[in-house]
């Protein structure tokens, strides 16, 4: 078990009241597994991811990664952000080497690692470019390479392709599967796109509306590469959509209620 989440809860203060964002969330993810977290907006998918990353403190329950309780952020849990979050003053290579630099790894070794990753994510020729010179898809390639440089046990991805256009998005999904099979990382991937989840995941975790917990875990069970137009793909999509629709309705009803 690479990630073991039990009874996870998160409460945010809001003025004098508090908001329960996550309540009784349970999820176990095996080594090398690709899991997508799906749910209506505001259900706390990103919060779950940030809690696993250690960027926020949990209010209840436990999160274990490789058997150790998460207490703070750590390079063993790499994260990829929707906003890319690249350091604008650093070149592609220097962005990728950031984590290695923090650990005081010498330049020769850093360079060897970053060169290997630049090859892996397909950024040859852009080593010395700054982020603002890159397209969105290329930026996220840097984001993925930067997270991988620390050789994390898990890769946490927060709607990483959400800011990309549809074409680039499809390409990046394929690229991510290629990188995943090359690195065999455990991936927890947050998305609000059913299509993306069915295309990528081994299992899809559908969350409930707030307070967020696991509503249903749907194994995709289709061989890769997946064909979005195949009957089987559409069937799984339909199943996920049906689950999600009910939660969307609940979320909407809640939004409309006076409280």
């Amino acid at each position: 078990m690479t990630i073991d989440i039990r009874g996870l809860g998160k409460v945010f203060p809001k003025g004098k009241k508090t908001i329960t964002a996550i309540d009784g969330f349970d999820l176990q993810i095996g080594e090398g597994e690709f899991v997508c977290l799906l749910g209506p907006s505001g259900c706390g998918k990103t919060t779950v991811l940030r809690l696993v990353a250690g960027l926020e403190a949990k209010s209840a329950g436990s999160i274990k990664v490789q058997g150790r309780e998460v207490v703070s952020s750590s390079p063993e849990r790499g994260m990829v952000f929707q906003e890319f979050a690249l350091f604008p003053w650093r070149t592609v290579r220097k962005n990728i080497e950031f984590g290695l630099e923090l650990r005081g790894i010498l330049e020769d070794r850093r360079k060897a690692v970053s060169s290997r990753l630049i090859d892996l994510v397909g950024l040859e020729g852009f080593e010395d470019a700054h982020p603002k010179e890159l397209s969105g898809g290329m930026k996220q390639r840097v984001g993925i390479a930067r997270a991988l440089a620390n050789e994390p046990a898990v890769l946490l991805m927060d709607e990483p392709f959400g800011a990309l256009d549809a074409q680039t998005r499809n390409l990046m999904q394929k690229e991510l599967l290629r990188i995943w099979s090359a690195t065999k990382k455990t991936i927890l991937f947050v998305t609000h796109s059913v299509d993306e989840a069915v295309f990528l995941a081994d299992r899809i975790v559908v969350m409930t509306a707030r307070p967020g917990k696991v509503r249903e875990i749907i194994p995709v069970g289709l061989p890769r590469p997946r064909d979005r137009t195949s009957k089987e793909f559409i069937a799984v999509r339909g199943k996920v959509l049906a689950e999600l629709d009910e939660e969307f309705e609940k979320a909407r009803a809640k939004e409309l209620s006076p409280d």
Partner: peptide, 29 residues
């Protein structure tokens, strides 16, 4: 300083001192 850059640095293993030296300072130049 963009908070997401601080988040990124933290997930890459930066401590407070490193966040200051490698994120906050260059951002402010």
């Amino acid at each position: 300083v963009d908070p997401v850059l601080v988040d990124a640095a933290r997930t890459l293993g930066a401590n407070r001192r490193q966040i200051f030296l490698k994120v906050v300072l260059p951002f402010s130049v």
